[in-house]
Design a protein around this nucleic acid. Structure first.
Lengths: 246, 246
DNA sequence: AACATCCTAATGTCAGGACAAACTCTTGAC
DNA sequence: GTCAAGAGTTTGTCCTGACATTAGGATGTT
């Protein structure tokens, strides 16, 4: 049952070999060369076809299994999963998500200040008393229609932020350029009713449904970098994700 | 900087060695033996201390990094992450989540039928025309208070389901006992306003906010097993999750 | 024809080694 | 005193090899 998925591996590339394999198989699945449900060759043959060792091949397949694209069964083989699934929720900003989907988001900075953090923010970011933070609220629109109302607090000892930057690009892009390597974020998603402040800004009726998200992001040194409270129009936004059993 | 985390590895156990290490370190972190921010010994020493090879040790640490408990940096070492983060959203049912938190959920079956699937359900579960499915709605309460209203469709060629079972335990427990090995699920979380049907059942006022979730679950053979539409009282439920950068 | 048993194929686990790349700290030069 | 070069440490990648475990088909027996 040969399944020639003619990938090419570039051994002089700085991209690790197993990651090249991941990208190759991912592309083959998304382009339809590998159909949902079809079986792959066994690991040993695949490794031999690409002149790789089995551990390297396995590491690549491990990632694809984790991502939910492949399913392995001992004694049987490896199959392309029935597809129709989305990528897992990524550690990215709304701005990135929209840009990647070809949309053109615009940002309106409603307020911006550099102030001493209130006790709740100190706790959320685990900062010592008296620390200053950036505090700002933004309104994000897509195609002229309001989508999200975002309030954020960011520690100020990483990179400086100004209002003009925030209007031009996403918060995460600014922070990444400031040297922040995000590692993880914990977030909570819920719902609420639009209040009298939110409704007109989002051009929604008072009493309509909003999706709420609270998030705190941590960088690779363990610092809490950013915390925020966002609300989205429920008729225009929802969170999609894929859960993988481990 | 020795960091004796006296784990014991049982080589005669059927549990893989790397998984024993994962459990051991996980326990050490949760019990506070390994404090947040503390550095672990390097991989080679750790492997030697436990009489393991480096690849085995690395595989264990890979899992912990993926789970967000550890952070590695080349040339520097491995640290316990600042903690305070929750476990990732698991592929589990509401019933399991509540039971694990010590709550005592009760389930009321509002409707139950075994019927031909409508076109939307056929598409969601990728079934051939004319297939029959179980269709039921349930109301879940905790401490006597309504929390969730759940409508589900389940394919009928896996295991039989009856009303009495659904009142006693969670859907996923029934399916797992029927031989289903869940692999992944894709879900969408959003918000809506309680309508006249939902509000009285959830003992909420009409017009109050609800969290909505739509989910389709896939087993290890690639079959779409179950799809459902759930709504939760926004004042009693929200989705918490940890996102890990990869 | 039905059933239990063996065999094969595939993934799962584990070992040991080698070199590359990145970060830190020290040392040295200016 | 400041900056740059280098050494050492630690993780990242990749290889070869071996055996265990499981699923499913083939085989043989009753």
């Amino acid at each position: 049952m040969a399944n020639q998925l003619s990938l090419s591996i570039d051994r002089s590339s700085p991209v690790p070999l197993y990651h090249q394999v991941v990208q190759g198989i991912e592309a083959a699945i998304h382009s339809g060369i590998l159909e949902p449900g079809s079986r792959l060759d066994n690991e040993i043959d695949l490794a031999a076809q690409l002149n790789l060792s089995r551990p390297t091949m396995r590491k690549a397949m491990d990632e694809l299994v984790r991502a939910g694209l492949l399913v392995r069964k001992r004694g049987v083989g490896t199959q392309v999963v029935s597809s129709q699934v989305r990528r897992p929720l990524e550690l990215s900003s709304l701005y990135d998500d929209l840009s990647n989907n070809g949309k053109k988001p615009t940002t309106e900075v409603l307020s911006f200040s550099h102030v001493e953090a209130d006790p709740l923010t100190l706790a959320a970011l685990q900062l010592p008393a008296g620390s200053k933070v950036y505090h700002f609220t933004r309104l994000r629109k897509v195609g002229g229609k309001p989508l999200a109302l975002m309030e954020n607090w960011v520690r100020d000892d990483i990179t400086s932020i100004d209002e003009a930057q925030l209007a031009k690009e996403g918060l995460y892009a600014i922070l990444r350029r400031g040297g922040v390597n995000f590692r993880l974020a914990s977030q909570r998603i819920g719902a609420m009713i639009a209040n009298d402040y939110q409704a007109p800004l989002l051009e929604a009726e008072a009493g309509s449904a909003l999706v709420t998200m609270e998030r705190t992001a941590v960088d690779d040194t363990g610092r809490m970098v950013e915390t925020g409270h966002h609300v989205y129009r429920a008729d225009s936004y929802s969170f999609e994700m894929t859960l993988v059993q481990r």
